[in-house]
Structures are given as structure tokens and as C-alpha cells.
Design a protein around this nucleic acid. Structure first.
Lengths: 255, 255
DNA sequence: AAGTGGTCTAGACCACCAC
DNA sequence: TGGTGGTCTAGACCACTTG
């Protein structure tokens, strides 16, 4: 196959020849597909040809084609949906986890179509790990809400929210497919003034991968937030599992 | 091979049987290796057996073994070094990009051994993209510093810093293997009071992958920060490319 | 020189999804 | 039911790192 390798290099040529080694074919293929995305030949949410078709088209094997697709996925330029195919990622949503702005609002403002599903809303007893984070007593009551959120019909985040019932009694009777913060502000006059946000990139595994309908190991961003009011009373602990290509975190710090 | 598949499932069994489908072998293998990390049989920075050895040991092929290793890499539990092998990731460094605390200080405080290398320090003219971000005039002078930083001998981040020469005249004569912020504070009495931090997960590609000595496509976190003083004067633009398993972002927001 | 991961081939069967 | 991605096999050669 040395002949075909030579042709491949000749065909892609262009940049990146700064090093003394050949550019592997899967990176050449990555760049060709990336170019089609950049020029708009492939637009957001449009589906790519199947892996088998791509392998034929570029005269390679599925394994190599998947390497190229995996690169673009890692860069956040493509995503896949279960066994349905590969799609072009839309622009990242710009998100500031330190503000209490509603998901619905900022997605809409950025041109996306948001949707929220409530998967669970129950009352639990505080487990040890949460007692430690919140300062609540282990075994006392806590509200738990689990949601899944979509942008343009794509599930991009799932979250577990734990709310202190002392500050929001009877919360569970509401509909959580709307903004929880708006609810807390308007119904309970709760204001969150002290937030501690922690986040790191990691792979999505079960059960979150299943909830979002992606392959285990898909790159994600884990974000959690502990909110207290101005007296230091614990209000909520929220943990979010995002698809890694869906968001761009933006935080302002003054002082 | 249906026989050997059956044995594999029997051997791992345990959890995750909530769904009606079999757990693929590469995930079983992932869990076995993860267990060795969790129990400390494999400790931070220790090297795993070679891919070929692992494939034999677990009676599978390199491709499948690599799938398992790739999962653990995506989760931030393993990292690889060029063609040297697979290693166990140490704890993530907790990092607050909104504070001006020195890298050296917080790495040391968290039990790591930091090191900084200056790759470049030159004077440039402001390019269009930076002019837009900073408000400086395109074509005016700007200092550029490129560094690479290590923890425990592992290169985990590379950064480009662009400093306004008006607030730090003669900056380039200093040694940048120390904290830049300490330098700015002590030599120029510069205080950064307004910071805008942006970050998102993405793959590391050339040239950053090369600088850090990792395969292109390795998961990373891109962080940038625009700092101004209390009068709104642009001080620096910093962009950092981190290995995704090396850090945990932690931000406090009050008010 | 030997061993490592990096790249690549040419197939196969399975689970799931859309039609 | 046919096509998709998901998983897996059993090899190969290459580039690079290490002793």
C-alpha cells in the first residue's frame, strides 16, 4: 500500500510539514472533513456519510475512518448519536455557571431551541457525601430532582439537583421543566449569593452516558455547584454532566 | 469466540447488569484496571504493562486492550507518554483561574513538584485577533511569552501570554521560569482586578500536542483569560492548553 | 537492538434504529 | 429488514525511545 500512501500525502499536502515525519492518513482525513465543516458544505446537525461509505470514498478501512471521526469528535467538531450516525456539532453554548441565569434564556438568546425533561423528583434522606458538602445532617430530608436538557433536540446535559427543603418547603409540587432558579426566586424569594463551582473534563460513563444516549467513554465536562444564601445557609447542590462539545464556560471575576 | 466471551462475563460479573445487553469486554477490562488503580496496586505515575502484554494477559487483541486503555485515559485515570507507555494519572491539581495565585505555589501546596520552562519571550506587533480582544491598536507592540509547565516531571500545560508593554516596560529582561504575576506585582505594582475567563474542553492538536509530547487528539482543556486593571486598562491575555486529566477548576463567586 | 506505542489492513458478528 | 455504529479478531509495518 505504499503507493496509495504516497497519493494520500500528495492529495492533502498543504500545511503541517514542519516535522520530518509523514502526516498519518487519519489526520489527513480529519483535515479534509474539517475543511468541509469550515466551508459550510457540512452544516450544524447535518449527518455525515456512513463509516463504510467514508472508508470506500477515501479508500481506507473503517478503523482508520473511525480514527479520523474520533479526532473530530474529540475536538468538538462532530458528535455521534447512538447507532444513528455522525453529525456536525453546532456552536458551543456560552455558559456562566456562577450566574443564576436560566438555561432556557441563554440558549434561546444564542439561537438554540432548549428543552428540559424532568426524570425524577423525589424526597430522599441526606447521604454521607452530601452531608459533608452541604453541612446538613446525614439522614435528614432533601429534595432530589434529576433532569435532562436538550438543545435543538440533542440531549446535551443531565443533572442532579439537591435542594434544602428548609428554604423551599413543598418544592416538589412544581413543574421542573422550567427554570428552577426562577421558581426559587419567585415562589420562595431565595437568593443565591455564595456559589462554589467545581468542574473538570472527564468521560461520561453509566448511568449518565445512557441518559444522554451516548457511548460510554464519550468526552464530557463535569460541573458542580454549591449555593448558599448570604447567611451561609445551604440552598442547593447541583451536579451537571455535559457533553464536552456543547459548551464554553465563561466567568467574570471582579476585585 | 462465544465461549471465551461467556468466560469473560462470568469472570467480571458484578454490577451494571441493569440493562438487557452484555457489558462489552473492553469495559470489563477497563473496570479491572480501574480497580487496580483504586486499590493502589497501581499507584500514581507507575507504568502499566505494555499493550501486547495486556492483550495476552487478558486473552484479547491489542485493539481491544487499547479501547480499554483509551476509556481510562478519557476518564482521566491513565495517561500516555509518547511511545513510552501508559501511566497512572496522579490526583488533579485544583486550580482557580480567577485568582492570581502562582502555579508554583498551589502545585507545591498540593504535594506536587512544579517546573516551568520558558520556550519563547519576544516582542511582537499586535495581530488583528488580539487587537479585538484587548482593545490595543493593531500593529502596536506587545510582549509574547510562551511557557511549558510540568508537575512531577510531566508536561501538563503550555501557554501563550501577551502582555501590554505600557504597563510592564522592559518586562522581557526578567526570568519567566518564576511566577509572572509575582513579577508584575513586585516589579511593576500591577494589580489585576477585572478578569474574564473562558474555557472549554477540546482535543490538543499541533502545535500544542507536540509541545506537550502527546499524540494529537489527546483530550485537553483550553483556558484563556483577559485581565485588566481597575481602570479597565488591558494588562494581559493568557491562553493555556492543559491536559484534561491534570486539573480541576474551582471558582468562588460571591454576590 | 529490542521493545514500545502509532498506524493500518481486511475482514467478522452483534445490537439497535429507521423504514 | 436493511443499514448503522459498536465490538472484536489476527495480523502487519513503522517511528521512536530506551538500554
Amino acid at each position: 500500500m505504499s503507493t496509495s500512501q504516497g497519493q494520500r500525502d500528495a492529495a492533502s499536502a498543504s500545511a503541517d510539514d514542519t516535522e520530518n515525519s509523514r502526516t498519518p492518513f487519519y489526520l489527513q482525513l480529519r483535515d479534509r472533513i474539517a475543511a468541509q465543516i469550515a466551508t459550510g458544505q457540512l452544516s450544524a446537525h447535518s449527518r455525515l456519510p456512513s463509516e463504510r461509505t467514508l472508508s470506500e470514498q477515501y479508500q481506507t478501512t473503517r478503523v482508520t475512518a473511525r480514527l479520523a471521526l474520533g479526532q473530530l469528535e474529540a475536538e468538538g467538531k462532530l458528535y455521534r448519536s447512538n447507532r444513528r450516525g455522525w453529525f456536525v456539532s453546532p456552536e458551543r453554548i456560552i455558559y456562566d455557571p456562577s450566574l443564576d441565569v436560566s438555561f432556557t434564556d441563554y440558549v434561546t438568546k444564542q439561537g438554540g431551541v432548549p428543552r428540559t425533561e424532568t426524570l425524577q423528583s423525589t424526597s430522599l434522606t441526606v447521604p454521607a457525601w452530601l452531608a459533608q458538602k452541604s453541612g446538613l445532617e446525614e439522614g435528614s430530608e432533601i429534595y432530589h430532582i434529576q433532569r435532562r436538557r436538550y438543545i435543538d433536540g440533542r440531549a446535551i446535559l443531565t443533572e442532579n439537583i439537591y435542594v434544602n427543603p428548609a428554604v423551599c418547603p413543598g418544592l416538589l409540587r412544581f413543574d421542573f421543566n422550567q427554570s428552577l432558579w426562577k421558581l426559587m426566586r419567585h415562589e420562595y424569594s431565595v437568593s443565591l449569593s455564595d456559589k462554589h463551582v467545581t468542574m473538570y473534563p472527564t468521560a461520561l460513563t453509566e448511568p449518565q452516558a445512557g441518559i444522554l444516549g451516548v457511548t460510554p467513554g464519550t468526552a464530557g465536562l463535569y460541573v458542580n455547584r454549591i449555593s448558599r444564601n448570604s447567611e451561609g445557609v445551604f440552598i442547593e447542590f447541583d451536579e451537571e454532566f455535559w457533553l464536552h462539545d456543547a459548551l464554553c464556560i465563561s466567568v467574570h471575576a471582579k476585585g
